[in-house]
Design a protein around this nucleic acid. Structure first.
Lengths: 349, 349
DNA sequence: TTGAAAGCGTTACCAG
DNA sequence: CTGGTAACGCTTTCAA
């Protein structure tokens, strides 16, 4: 029923070697021969079998992407899109391993190590793996590439933003506008190991402390609420959000500036605050992080990162690593930038 | 370097057949033998090679997912998550084919048919394929499963929502609340073939016409703006949105109810309208479609669909089809439901 | 530029 | 329950 390379070779009157080359090394075959082979192949609905090709060649043409939460999260979806954009054209499939943040999934993965002998590279997106896990991963004997991993120990390559620097930039921006009562709001995962975004708080703290050290009278604090029970919940569950909101409204004096761990927190927060009569930028400034869905159309001032480009960069590094080529910049820091929009303003007194 | 099944067999003192069975048919091997095999396998970092297994078995353990726009769109990401949740545990990889909506990508796909002989099933998400393309796809000789495809001709199975019914429900809800001046807003793709969401307009029209036929004096219209030039743009590009906004504000009398083709339009729209002094539900009611990101936290009344569940259902159907088992419900209509929240209210006169 | 031949590492059939 | 053995459909030297 399904034609094999033999059938094509026979019908085209060439050897199977030639058919193989017509597909994988077109330049090694004369134009005439190749044209004939391709025509016959099409007539016979023939195509090179990946299974056979990968078996013979030793490469699996497959990579794994380990991720913190779900495929649907803004960061993961964008990163995947980036990986896919360079890996697919290069002939690779991407095996997805979502929710490595749940204890069960994570343990099962690192115990059974399903990728062993079956991928050419492993991508780790936005969470940290501990030394023991690094050891396990290394048993797969393939390059390990990190994308926004808090640490680069054990990784053959990585592309990450400087989360701390980004949030520092955000807080400094607000301070420069004249704000003196700053709050940082975040939802921290309970059971999960450290994720890249946990570093953002440090940036906020550093900005405030530096300002104070420079004689600026600043009133600042961090409001941290636990992330929802379920590790599968997004960072901005209704519960987490309500918790943040009430903590904010309980404050003796409402802050004049709010730094949010992520847009996913900033956006619902500013919309909810509106119902309490707090309008931005009239009553307070607010700044997000990520520049994710709706940030532009809502006019949210934020720190922009571009996970799709980061994914594409990471994929290119992987390709080189797989090919055994050297990497001039194994560990790359991707840029973040301030996107000034309409939720921040100078303080006038 | 890498251990093969031979090495494991030798070290465990069994035949390679036994090693193979220990992995793929555990119940056909005695507990003792299996334990020993698995221990040795782990010591040797051995794992069954997919390439070899798929070559020999004839199955590719791979499926393709064709999608309209990008991986990052709310619908596609959720659908993929659903597919993945059942396909991954079953041992399948998912090859992604995004942006089949751009003429170039689409043409290349259907001409080269890269899936031929290399997938066990094909999923088509949320766009229509024409008869010729169906023919091409069929040459792959594998089950074709649709997810929210406008048409089910040529598909072996499908799971879809009733887009028309959903929007009918939305409009009827607003009419029942007493609204008499309704507008439907949508952004329609220019170059793309029909997508499932294009049917929603019909539901709106039918609701209005039916109401009128029943003697309700209704004033209604459809505001349709072209989607952004770039086929890669989301349905709610800033341009499309601005166009909708001005069309709306140009109206002689502002509508008391707005039905939106998607939440992606409703959400930015309601937030922009607020800047023009139009507040919902005080000044008008607005209803979205999808129940996508932020709809809940923003309190947007909408029509809910669950693409993740739909993806999982589609995947289960595919698995049966691949196994040659019959399908009791090849073509399934997934439910939609009205999610009443805070952007709609009864009209008091 | 093309052909012949030797496997790649499994699965599955058939015996025992 | 276990072992022997013949493929599966290619890629890749090596020669011509």
């Amino acid at each position: 029923m399904q034609a094999t390379i033999q059938d094509v070779a026979a019908k085209a009157g060439v050897s199977i070697s030639t058919v193989s080359r017509a597909f994988t090394r077109p330049d090694m075959v004369s134009d005439r021969t190749r044209a004939k082979v391709m025509r016959v192949a099409d007539e016979l609905d023939f195509n090179i079998s990946r299974s056979a090709a990968t078996l013979k060649s030793g490469r699996t043409n497959r990579v794994a992407m380990l991720m913190n939460d779900g495929i649907t999260s803004w960061f993961n979806a964008a990163t995947l899109a980036g990986l896919e954009s360079v890996l697919h054209p290069a002939g690779y499939d991407i095996a997805l391993f979502p929710h490595i943040d749940t204890a069960q999934t994570r343990q099962r993965f690192f115990e059974t190590l399903p990728i062993r002998r079956n991928v050419d590279a492993v991508f780790v997106a936005s969470f940290a793996i501990d030394p023991h896990e690094v050891e396990q991963l290394k048993r797969a004997q393939v390059p390990i590439i990190g994308i926004n991993t808090p640490d680069i120990d054990g990784f053959d390559a990585s592309v990450s933003i400087d989360d701390e620097q980004g949030m520092l930039m955000a807080a400094q921006h607000l301070i420069k506008l004249g704000h003196r009562h700053l709050v940082y709001v975040c939802a921290d995962a309970v059971h999960t190991l450290s994720a890249s975004i946990d570093k953002r708080e440090q940036g906020f703290r550093r900005a405030c402390e530096t300002a104070q050290a420079n004689g600026i009278a600043l009133d600042w604090q961090v409001i941290s609420v636990p992330r929802d029970q379920s590790a599968l919940a997004s960072i901005s569950s209704p519960q987490a959000l309500s918790a943040i909101l009430s903590r904010l409204l309980e404050l003796d004096t409402f802050p004049d500036a709010i730094c949010c761990q992520a847009d996913m927190i900033a956006i619902p927060l500013m919309l909810r605050l509106e119902r309490y009569g707090k309008r931005t930028p009239r009553d307070y400034s607010i700044i997000g992080f990520d520049d994710s869905t709706y940030a532009d159309v809502l006019g949210l001032t934020t720190i922009r990162q571009d996970p799709q480009t980061m994914g594409a960069d990471a994929a290119r590094k992987a390709l080189r690593l797989i090919a055994g080529k050297p990497l001039d910049d194994a560990h790359e820091i991707a840029p973040v930038s301030l996107m000034p929009r309409n939720t921040d303003d100078v303080v006038d007194r």
